Simulated scan of single mutants.
Amino acid sequence: MASRQRVPRPDDEAPVFVISVAAELAGMHAQTLRQYDRIGLVTPSRTRGGGRRYSARDVELLREVQRLSQEEGISLPGIARILELENHVDALQSRVAELTLEAERLRIAASGGSRIFSVGPGGEILASRLGERPRRRPGGGSASQALVLWRP
Results as ranks from 00 to 15, higher is better:
Ser3Asn: 06
Arg4Ile: 15
Gln5Tyr: 02
Arg6Phe: 06
Arg6Ala: 12
Val7Glu: 12
Pro8Leu: 08
Pro8Gly: 03
Arg9Val: 14
Arg9Lys: 13
Pro10Arg: 05
Val16Tyr: 00
Phe17Gln: 01
Ile19Glu: 07
Ser20Trp: 06
Ser20Pro: 06
Val21Glu: 13
Gly27Cys: 03
Gly27Phe: 02
Met28Ala: 13
His29Gly: 07
Ala30Asn: 02
Gln31Ile: 02
Thr32Gly: 01
Arg34Gly: 04
Arg34Trp: 06
Arg34Leu: 08
Arg38Glu: 14
Ile39Val: 15
Thr43Tyr: 07
Arg46Asp: 10
Arg48Glu: 15
Arg48Pro: 08
Gly51Pro: 01
Arg52Phe: 07
Arg52His: 01
Arg53Trp: 04
Ser55Tyr: 03
Ala56Ser: 11
Arg57Tyr: 03
Arg57Phe: 08
Asp58Pro: 03
Leu61Pro: 00
Gln66Ile: 07
Ser69Arg: 15
Glu72Val: 14
Gly73Glu: 06
Gly73Tyr: 10
Ser75Thr: 11
Pro77Gly: 02
Gly78Cys: 08
Gly78Lys: 09
Ile79Phe: 02
Ile79Asn: 00
His88Leu: 15
His88Gln: 15
Ala91Asp: 13
Arg95Thr: 09
Val96Asn: 04
Ala97Val: 07
Glu98Met: 02
Leu101Gln: 12
Ala103Asp: 05
Arg105Gln: 14
Arg107Val: 07
Gly112Arg: 15
Ile116Pro: 00
Ile116Lys: 04
Ser118Tyr: 03
Val119Thr: 15
Gly120Leu: 04
Pro121Val: 11
Pro121Thr: 09
Pro121Arg: 13
Gly123Asp: 01
Ile125Ala: 10
Ala127Arg: 08
Ala127Ile: 08
Ala127Gly: 07
Leu130Tyr: 04
Gly131Met: 09
Gly131Gln: 03
Gly131Trp: 02
Arg136Tyr: 05
Arg136Asn: 12
Pro138Met: 04
Gly139Ala: 10
Gly139His: 12
Ala146Asp: 12
Ala146Gly: 06
Leu147Gly: 05
Val148Gly: 00
Val148Asn: 01
Leu149Trp: 11
Trp150Gly: 08
